[in-house]
C-alpha cells in the first residue's frame, strides 16, 4: 500500500478540521502515517509530512526548527514546492522533536500574528512532541468546547505563558497543532484558553 494523495490526504484534512473545531479532541493519523514512504521521512515524522502534503504548495512558506533544518526543509520543498523562509515571515513553523529547548517559545514569540484587518495572515505552528495523551494537565475552554476539556501534553517549556501573551490581542494570534510519536494530533487554535491544571502532589 502507498499513500493515496487524494483519499488519504482528504482523511488527514478532515481530522485537522475535527481537531481544530473541537480543541481537545485527539485525532489519530497512524493509519495514514503508516503509508508514508520511509525514504520520504528524512528527519521529520510521517505525521508532520502528512500535514505538509495536505496543506503546503508553492503559495506557502515555512520554517523548520531542528539541527537538521536545512535537510528537512529541502525534503519538504521537494515534496510540496513550499518555500523555506525566515521565522517572522513563515506561514507554517515546524518544531521538530530534536529542536533545541526553547524553540517553541522562540517560534511563538516571533511568529506572525496577522493584522487587525487580516488576522488570517498569521502562522500555524506545528510541533512534534513525545505525547499528546500524557504529561502536564491542561484545562481548555473556548469555542468548540462544551464547558471544559482536559488534555495532557508533554512539553518542557514555558510555552503556555508565551502563547497567552501572543494571543492576548485577539483576533491576532497563532494557531498550534501538536503531533506525537504515535501520530496522535491535538490542535489549539488561538481562541482556546488554557489553564495549567496543577494538582497537589503527595510526597511518596
Amino acid at each position: 500500500m502507498t499513500l493515496d494523495i487524494v483519499h488519504d490526504l482528504q482523511s488527514v484534512y478532515r481530522k485537522l478540521v475535527d481537531s481544530t473545531s473541537r480543541p481537545g479532541l485527539i485525532s489519530d493519523l497512524s493509519k495514514q502515517a503508516s503509508l508514508v514512504e520511509e525514504e520520504d521521512q528524512k528527519g521529520c515524522s510521517a505525521s508532520l509530512l502528512l500535514i505538509a502534503l495536505t496543506l503546503f504548495d508553492q503559495e506557502v512558506s515555512f520554517k523548520v526548527f531542528s539541527p537538521q533544518a536545512d535537510y528537512v526543509s529541502q525534503t519538504i520543498n521537494q515534496l510540496t514546492y513550499a518555500k523555506p523562509t525566515d521565522l517572522k515571515k513563515a506561514d507554517f513553523l515546524l518544531i521538530l522533536q530534536d529542536a533545541e529547548k526553547g524553540s517553541l517559545e522562540e517560534a511563538i514569540i516571533n511568529a506572525k500574528a496577522g493584522t487587525l484587518k487580516n488576522p488570517h495572515t498569521s502562522a500555524f505552528i506545528i510541533v512534534e512532541v513525545d505525547s499528546v495523551t500524557s504529561g502536564e494537565a491542561l484545562l481548555l475552554k473556548g469555542p468548540g468546547i462544551h464547558t471544559t476539556e482536559l488534555v495532557h501534553l508533554d512539553i518542557n517549556e514555558n510555552w503556555v505563558e508565551s502563547r497567552q501573551e501572543k494571543n492576548k490581542e485577539y483576533p491576532l494570534g497563532i494557531d498550534l497543532i501538536f503531533i506525537d510519536q504515535n501520530h496522535q494530533l491535538l490542535a489549539l487554535p488561538r481562541t482556546t484558553q488554557i489553564t495549567r491544571n496543577r494538582v497537589i502532589e503527595w510526597d511518596m
Binding site: V6, Y13, F56, S122, D175
Partner: peptide, 26 residues
C-alpha cells in the same frame, strides 16, 4: 478528478477553512 477539484484548489480552500475555524465569524 475525485470531487471535481484538482488537489491544488482543495489545498487552498482547506487552508482558508482551517483559519476560518480558528477565527470564528471572520
Amino acid at each position: 478528478n475525485f470531487a471535481f477539484f484538482d488537489e491544488g484548489s482543495k489545498r487552498e480552500i482547506r487552508r482558508a477553512t482551517l483559519k476560518a475555524i480558528a477565527i470564528p465569524g471572520y
